[in-house]
Design a protein around this nucleic acid. Structure first.
Length: 203
DNA sequence: GACAATGTATCAGCAGGGCA
DNA sequence: TGCCCTGCTGATACATTGTC
């Protein structure tokens, strides 16, 4: 069907990106891997990504071959993740969301027509301060845009994966954010800061 | 223990698309 | 153009679990 959906890039950029593993791996496998790690069920994973069960089984076989690890091992009626599988799960989730952001990106962000979903991670306090006004503005200026709110764990810094999964993180100034090398701006007189992605319309 | 149900793995045969 | 890879359907074998 779509053989080599991602392998064309390995020809176009062989000189500069020759060493990148991503050039040698079908990106669709990442989607299959995410479904398998999330659901731990081949048939249900196949249904989620609109593949047949044999196709998902074959994808799992290729993934096992690539990682040289079972990833999922039988446990009674279901599957359990191997240690590698458990390590991969947050990485795969973040990677898929990053890829999703790439393909959703457009040259011009039109808030009126956009139906993009943004993930905002914030403390309860920050949410109480910022979100009412944000929702009012969204309703008026970007009616189809959706916002998924994630609560920031109290007293503990966010991991890099948690930061990467968020389009916007609203937190107190000085709050330690792993890997937060992105845009950061002071939002209110209460000294909140908001690291956001470079692709974010507000950046 | 026998049986049914469920789920996974694998095979055959076929088709589509990229690449040399 | 032929090869290779991937995905499809359909079929089958096998393992596990639940029920009787």
């Amino acid at each position: 069907m779509r053989r080599g959906a991602s392998t064309v890039s390995s020809m176009d950029y062989a000189d500069s990106d020759q060493s990148l593993v991503v050039n040698r791996v079908d990106q669709n496998l990442l989607i299959s891997l995410r479904a398998l790690l999330d659901l731990r069920h081949v048939t249900k994973a196949a249904e989620r990504v609109h593949l047949s069960q044999p196709a998902m089984s074959a994808a799992l076989r290729r993934l096992r071959r690539h990682f040289n690890d079972e990833l999922l091992v039988r446990s009674g009626t279901g599957y359990e993740l191997t240690p590698l599988g458990r390590r991969l799960q947050p990485l795969v989730t973040a990677a898929v969301q990053s890829l999703d952001s790439v393909w959703r990106e457009s040259a011009v962000f039109d808030p009126v027509s956009s139906d993009r979903q943004f993930t905002i991670t914030s403390s309860h306090y920050a949410a109480a301060v910022v979100l009412p006004g944000l929702r009012t503005q969204l309703a008026a200026q970007a009616p189809s845009v959706r916002v998924e709110l994630q609560s920031m764990p109290r007293g503990t810094a966010l991991s890099e994966n948690e930061v990467l999964r968020s389009d916007l993180v609203i937190c107190p100034l000085g709050y330690g954010l792993a890997g937060a090398t992105r845009c950061c701006s002071t939002m209110t007189s209460c000294a909140l800061s908001a690291p956001i992605t470079r692709s974010h319309p507000a950046s």
